[in-house]
């Protein structure tokens, strides 16, 4: 599964995107927890107020995801 990161989350983790394997019944929240276990900077980046999207649509942590999905984590938006 492809996971993308934007803004502060991209900067703090030093990662624009990565590929990861996910179990059959994975949820976005499960993906977030797995990523946070990668180290302190991941914990810092993903523990605060984080929005997530699945296949470029906003969703919440309970959404189930599969290998073909594109998931993204980002902070609250500040455009305009």
């Amino acid at each position: 599964m492809k996971v993308k990161f934007f803004a502060q989350i991209r900067e703090v983790t030093g990662t624009e995107s990565l590929d990861m394997a996910v179990p059959a019944d994975a949820t976005i929240e499960g993906v977030r927890q797995t990523l946070m276990a990668r180290g302190p900077q991941w914990q810092e980046a993903l523990s605060a107020n984080v929005l997530c999207a699945c296949n470029q649509t906003l969703c919440d942590g309970s959404k189930t995801v599969s290998e073909q999905d594109e998931v993204a984590f980002f902070p609250p938006v500040t455009g305009g």
Binding site: F6, A7, Q8, A53, L58, F74, P75, V77, T78, G79, G80
Partner: peptide, 9 residues
């Protein structure tokens, strides 16, 4: 837009 469009400043 300021609430729902993914853009960061």
């Amino acid at each position: 837009l300021k609430q729902s469009v993914p853009i960061w400043k």
